[in-house]
C-alpha cells in the first residue's frame, strides 16, 4: 500500500524541529509499524538523507523502548498494543499518518522521535524497590502471599516503562507509571516496611522531574499498552495520604 507520512524531524535537543512529509509505497499489510519505518529509512539512506531515528529493541511489546505518537494516539489506534506490535493492516492504501515523539517536559527530545526517559529511572531510584541485600533472603515459602494479591501485584508490575501514559496525559503526568510500581510493591508483604517512605520519595522525585500533576482524567490508562488500571492511582493516593499524615 501507499502511504503519506508526516514525521517530526529534529536534528538534536537544541534544534527546533518540524513535521516533514514523506510518501512511501509498496508497504505490505503484514509489516509492523516499525518495519514500515525501516522501509522508509532504507529509502532515505538510498537518497542520501538522514534516516528517521526512533527507539525500539525487542519488537515484541515487552521492552518498552518503542514510543511513537501516531495520529495523536500514544502507540497508535489499536488498544493494548505497543507501537512495535501495531501492524499495517490497521491502515488502508492512501492513508496519511502523523508520527510524533512523546511530548513531555520530563522527556526531552533527543533526536527525531527519540526522547530521554531517564526521569522514570530517577523515580525508581527514589524508592521503587524493596531493599533485599543479596544473600539475606529467607526461604521463598517463608512468607505466603494470597493469590489475589499476587495476581494484582503482577498486573501492576506488568508496566513496561514505555511512557505512553505520560505522552497521553493532558497534564503530562507520570502518575500511572509511578502508581503501578507503588501498587506492585505495596501489594506484597515484602513491600510493607518501606511502603510509606517509598511513596513519599517517589512522588517527590516525580514532581522534581517536571511531570505534571494528575487530575484523574484517565487518558493514561486508555493509552497504556499493558492496560494498567486507574485503581493503582487510587492506591498511590491512599498510601500517600497515610504516609503524609504520619510524616506530619
Amino acid at each position: 500500500m501507499k502511504l503519506r507520512l508526516r514525521i517530526w524531524r529534529q536534528a538534536g535537543a537544541e534544534d527546533k524541529g518540524k513535521m516533514v512529509p514523506y510518501v512511501i509505497d509498496g508497504i505490505s499489510e503484514d509489516a509492523s509499524f516499525l518495519e514500515m519505518l525501516d522501509v522508509l529509512n532504507e529509502q532515505l539512506i538510498a537518497e542520501g538523507e538522514d534516516p528517521v531515528a526512533f527507539d525500539h529493541d525487542c519488537r515484541e511489546g515487552i521492552c518498552g523502548a518503542c514510543s511513537l505518537m501516531i495520529d495523536g494516539q500514544a502507540h497508535g489506534p489499536q488498544g493494548a498494543t505497543t507501537t512495535c506490535q501495531l501492524h499495517m493492516r490497521q491502515y488502508s492504501d492512501g492513508d496519511t499518518i502523523d508520527i510524533e515523539p512523546w511530548r513531555a517536559g520530563a522527556f526531552p527530545v533527543v533526536k527525531d522521535l527519540v526522547v530521554d526517559r531517564s526521569s522514570f529511572d530517577r523515580i525508581i531510584q527514589a524508592g521503587g524497590y524493596i531493599s533485599a541485600p543479596t544473600g539475606t533472603a529467607p526461604d521463598a515459602h517463608a512468607v505466603p502471599v494470597p493469590k489475589p494479591d499476587a495476581d494484582a501485584a503482577f498486573s501492576a508490575a506488568a508496566c513496561i516503562g514505555c511512557g505512553a501514559c505520560v505522552a497521553a496525559c493532558p497534564n503530562g503526568s507520570g502518575m500511572l507509571f509511578m502508581a503501578a510500581k507503588v501498587a506492585h510493591l505495596g501489594l506484597m508483604p515484602q513491600g510493607q516496611p518501606e511502603r510509606h517512605t517509598r511513596v513519599l520519595g517517589m512522588v517527590a522525585a516525580h514532581d522534581e522531574a517536571g511531570f505534571g500533576g494528575c487530575t484523574n482524567t484517565g487518558e493514561c490508562s486508555a493509552a497504556c499498552p499493558k492496560e494498567i488500571g486507574l485503581d493503582v492511582i487510587g492506591r498511590l493516593n491512599a498510601d500517600f495520604r497515610k504516609a503524609a499524615t504520619r510524616a506530619a
Binding site: M19, G105, N171, G212, T217, C220, S221, A222
Partner: peptide, 20 residues
C-alpha cells in the same frame, strides 16, 4: 504545572478516550 510538563504541543490532536 501541566503547561510546563508539556512545553511543546502535539501537531495532531485527537478526542480523548479515557474514563473521564
Amino acid at each position: 504545572r501541566a503547561a510546563r510538563a508539556r512545553p511543546v504541543r502535539y501537531a495532531h490532536r485527537r478526542p480523548a478516550r479515557g474514563e473521564s
